Lab assay of single mutants.
Amino acid sequence: KPRVVLAPEEKEALKRAYQQKPYPSPKTIEDLATQLNLKTSTVINWFHNYRSRIRR
């Protein structure tokens, strides 16, 4: 699969959402995906990867 490249404003929106709730509910994930015009799997993976990046 080709890698999804996020626009800077999409990254900022995801980071703001992460600061509010690092483990978002499925509803929140769905809303974010719709709002940013991304797949839910992309949003889920971003949160998973961002949490692991923060832990390093």
Rank of each mutant, 00 (worst) to 15 (best):
1 K>V: 05
1 K>S: 04
1 K>F: 07
1 K>L: 00
1 K>D: 15
1 K>Y: 12
2 P>A: 10
2 P>F: 15
2 P>E: 15
2 P>I: 15
2 P>C: 12
3 R>L: 08
3 R>W: 06
3 R>N: 06
3 R>A: 04
3 R>C: 04
3 R>D: 04
3 R>P: 05
3 R>Q: 10
4 V>I: 10
4 V>G: 13
4 V>L: 07
4 V>N: 04
4 V>T: 05
4 V>P: 07
5 V>Q: 11
5 V>D: 11
5 V>K: 10
5 V>S: 11
5 V>H: 03
5 V>N: 10
5 V>P: 03
5 V>G: 04
6 L>Q: 07
6 L>E: 06
6 L>K: 08
6 L>H: 02
6 L>M: 13
6 L>P: 03
6 L>V: 05
7 A>R: 10
7 A>M: 14
7 A>C: 14
7 A>V: 01
7 A>T: 12
8 P>H: 01
8 P>T: 12
8 P>R: 07
8 P>Y: 02
8 P>C: 01
8 P>I: 15
9 E>L: 02
9 E>P: 05
9 E>G: 07
9 E>K: 13
9 E>R: 07
9 E>I: 03
9 E>S: 09
10 E>I: 15
10 E>S: 02
10 E>R: 01
10 E>D: 08
10 E>W: 00
10 E>T: 14
11 K>D: 01
11 K>Q: 12
11 K>C: 08
11 K>N: 12
11 K>Y: 04
12 E>N: 02
12 E>C: 08
12 E>P: 02
12 E>S: 06
12 E>H: 04
12 E>V: 04
12 E>A: 05
12 E>D: 12
13 A>H: 01
13 A>P: 02
13 A>Y: 03
13 A>D: 03
14 L>A: 05
14 L>H: 03
14 L>V: 04
14 L>G: 05
14 L>K: 09
14 L>Q: 02
15 K>E: 14
15 K>T: 09
15 K>V: 11
15 K>G: 04
15 K>H: 13
15 K>M: 13
15 K>D: 11
15 K>F: 09
15 K>Y: 05
16 R>W: 00
16 R>G: 07
16 R>D: 05
16 R>M: 12
16 R>V: 09
16 R>F: 05
16 R>Q: 10
16 R>A: 10
17 A>Q: 11
17 A>F: 05
17 A>L: 09
17 A>Y: 06
17 A>R: 02
17 A>V: 08
18 Y>K: 10
18 Y>A: 08
18 Y>M: 05
18 Y>C: 06
19 Q>S: 11
19 Q>H: 10
20 Q>R: 08
20 Q>V: 11
20 Q>K: 13
20 Q>T: 15
20 Q>L: 09
20 Q>C: 08
20 Q>H: 09
20 Q>F: 06
21 K>Q: 15
21 K>H: 01
21 K>W: 11
21 K>S: 15
21 K>D: 15
21 K>C: 14
22 P>V: 04
22 P>D: 07
22 P>S: 07
22 P>A: 07
23 Y>N: 08
23 Y>E: 05
23 Y>F: 08
23 Y>T: 10
23 Y>W: 04
23 Y>H: 06
23 Y>L: 14
23 Y>G: 04
24 P>R: 11
24 P>A: 03
24 P>Q: 01
24 P>H: 00
24 P>C: 01
24 P>F: 14
24 P>Y: 02
24 P>M: 15
24 P>N: 01
25 S>L: 13
25 S>A: 06
25 S>H: 03
25 S>Q: 05
25 S>N: 04
25 S>E: 11
26 P>D: 07
26 P>I: 03
26 P>M: 15
26 P>Q: 14
26 P>Y: 12
26 P>E: 03
26 P>R: 12
26 P>H: 05
27 K>G: 06
27 K>W: 05
27 K>S: 10
27 K>A: 05
27 K>Y: 04
27 K>P: 04
28 T>I: 02
28 T>N: 14
28 T>R: 13
28 T>P: 07
29 I>S: 02
29 I>A: 01
29 I>W: 11
29 I>G: 07
29 I>R: 05
29 I>Q: 14
29 I>F: 08
29 I>D: 01
29 I>H: 10
30 E>Y: 12
30 E>A: 14
30 E>V: 10
30 E>D: 04
30 E>R: 10
30 E>S: 13
30 E>M: 12
31 D>M: 11
31 D>P: 03
31 D>G: 11
31 D>F: 11
31 D>K: 13
31 D>E: 08
32 L>P: 02
32 L>I: 01
32 L>H: 01
32 L>D: 02
32 L>A: 03
32 L>M: 11
33 A>S: 08
33 A>Y: 08
33 A>T: 08
33 A>E: 00
34 T>W: 06
34 T>D: 06
34 T>F: 01
34 T>V: 07
34 T>M: 15
34 T>A: 12
35 Q>N: 07
35 Q>G: 10
35 Q>S: 10
35 Q>Y: 11
35 Q>M: 15
36 L>R: 02
36 L>C: 01
36 L>A: 02
36 L>D: 01
36 L>Q: 08
36 L>F: 05
36 L>I: 05
37 N>D: 04
37 N>R: 15
37 N>L: 00
37 N>H: 11
37 N>A: 11
37 N>G: 07
38 L>D: 03
38 L>T: 06
38 L>F: 03
38 L>Q: 10
38 L>Y: 04
38 L>V: 05
38 L>I: 06
39 K>S: 13
39 K>G: 06
39 K>N: 08
39 K>F: 09
39 K>I: 09
39 K>P: 12
39 K>R: 09
39 K>H: 09
39 K>D: 13
40 T>W: 14
40 T>N: 05
40 T>A: 13
40 T>Q: 08
41 S>A: 11
41 S>R: 13
41 S>F: 03
41 S>M: 14
41 S>Q: 13
41 S>I: 03
41 S>T: 11
41 S>Y: 02
41 S>D: 12
41 S>G: 07
41 S>W: 04
41 S>N: 08
42 T>P: 00
42 T>A: 14
42 T>Y: 06
42 T>K: 14
42 T>H: 02
42 T>S: 08
43 V>A: 01
43 V>I: 15
43 V>E: 00
43 V>W: 06
43 V>H: 00
43 V>T: 00
44 I>G: 02
44 I>D: 14
44 I>L: 04
44 I>F: 12
44 I>Q: 03
44 I>W: 03
45 N>F: 00
45 N>L: 01
45 N>E: 13
45 N>R: 06
45 N>A: 08
45 N>G: 07
45 N>Y: 00
45 N>C: 00
46 W>I: 01
46 W>F: 07
46 W>S: 00
46 W>D: 00
46 W>H: 00
47 F>L: 03
47 F>N: 08
47 F>R: 00
47 F>T: 00
48 H>T: 08
48 H>Y: 14
48 H>K: 14
48 H>F: 00
48 H>G: 08
48 H>E: 15
48 H>S: 12
48 H>N: 15
49 N>H: 01
49 N>E: 12
49 N>W: 08
49 N>G: 04
49 N>D: 05
50 Y>S: 02
50 Y>Q: 12
50 Y>N: 01
50 Y>F: 09
50 Y>E: 14
50 Y>D: 00
50 Y>H: 10
51 R>F: 14
51 R>L: 14
51 R>P: 00
51 R>A: 11
51 R>Y: 10
52 S>G: 07
52 S>V: 08
52 S>Q: 08
52 S>M: 13
52 S>R: 07
52 S>E: 14
53 R>D: 06
53 R>A: 11
53 R>S: 12
54 I>N: 09
54 I>T: 03
55 R>S: 12
55 R>T: 08
55 R>A: 11
55 R>G: 07
55 R>C: 12
55 R>N: 10
55 R>K: 15
56 R>P: 08
56 R>I: 06
56 R>E: 15
56 R>N: 09
56 R>L: 08
